[in-house]
């Protein structure tokens, strides 16, 4: 009786499955669109990182003799109404947009996750108050809310980041709260409590890893939105100071010369479109790969 089961096991050829490899990486390589988007993103990030080295001119050097030029050998993408080199400004602008967007997404991801965790995990009055706060923040139209905050704080890179984070954190918080509520009821949480785990440990080790996939998908798609918001605010002339090259501000200043020098709007617009499309494709692909309910998902 005692050894019968062990004997049975010994007779069976008992094969364990292979250890879990880098399935996610494999899947990325299977999807052509994601691979392409990823390469394009790396290209953009590379350009942004090395922008000060590779940009041919000082992005703020005014040269009124060369204003409103079309693309030529000297100025690859032409110049704007003050004779500033468009290529240099787009490169530096990529740096501005990407770094601000990264900051905004990281801050709101962190804030939102923390708030959502606390609200979902503790429930009761804590949940009520945080949820109402989230509702309030989500009820304002994003750009107008950011405009108000920037109007109060004044323009600047840091203030822009702060304003957009204040607008964006609530989305993450709401998503995280929902995730926590569903994960909290799973039995492994009970089992962790049973083995004497504290609240913080459970949140860190059990809840966040289970929710992170969903959050990352949101963050990726949101990245594109944040870049659009930055461009919008700069286009309205309230985001960044005039000496910081930024795509939205370039669009705004170029629109007056659209008939005579259309490249001043085409190139920054193209840059914005490209980066938003890249992040959309990445977010879509990540949702397909990380969402267990999606077809072919082995991660049940």
């Amino acid at each position: 009786m005692d050894n019968s089961f062990a004997d049975k096991l010994r007779k069976k050829s008992f094969l364990l499955p292979e250890a879990y490899g880098n399935e996610v990486v494999k899947k990325v390589f299977q999807r052509k669109d994601m691979l392409f988007a990823l390469l394009a993103l790396f290209f953009f990030v590379g350009l942004a990182l090395f922008a000060p080295l590779i940009s041919p001119y000082d992005p703020n050097a005014i040269n009124l003799k060369n204003k409103n030029l079309n693309p030529s050998e000297e100025h690859l993408l032409g110049t704007d109404y003050l004779g500033r080199d468009l290529l240099s400004r787009i490169l530096i602008g990529a740096q501005t947009s990407l770094s601000i967007a990264t900051g905004v997404v990281l801050i709101s991801l962190f804030l939102g996750t923390a708030a959502g965790c606390v609200a979902g995990y503790y429930g009761g009055i804590v949940d009520e108050s945080i949820s109402r706060l989230i509702d309030i923040f989500l009820s304002f139209p994003g750009v107008i809310f950011a405009l108000t905050i920037l109007g109060a704080l004044g323009s600047g890179v840091f203030n822009l980041m702060l304003a957009l984070s204040i607008v964006h954190w609530a989305k993450y918080a709401r998503l995280m709260r929902g995730q926590v509520l569903s994960i909290k009821k799973k039995e492994f949480i009970l089992s962790a409590i049973t083995s004497g785990a504290g609240d913080f440990y459970i949140i860190r080790k059990h809840i966040v890893p289970n929710a992170i996939a969903t959050l990352l998908v949101l963050a990726t798609i949101d990245f594109g939105h944040v870049i659009l918001s930055i461009a919008t605010l700069s286009f309205l002339g309230i985001g960044l100071p005039a000496d910081v090259p930024e795509w939205g501000a370039m669009l705004s200043s170029g629109k007056e010369f659209m008939r005579t020098a259309p490249f001043q709007t085409i190139f920054p617009g193209l840059a914005i479109t490209l980066i938003v499309v890249i992040f959309s494709i990445l977010g879509d692909g990540m949702r397909d790969i990380l969402d267990p309910n999606h077809e072919g998902g082995e991660i049940y």
């Binding site: 799973k186 492994f188 890893p209 289970n210």
Partner: peptide
């Protein structure tokens, strides 16, 4: 715990 499938954290 009651249900061994649910008692292990899937991730």
């Amino acid at each position: 715990p009651q249900n061994p499938a649910g008692a292990l954290n899937p991730v």
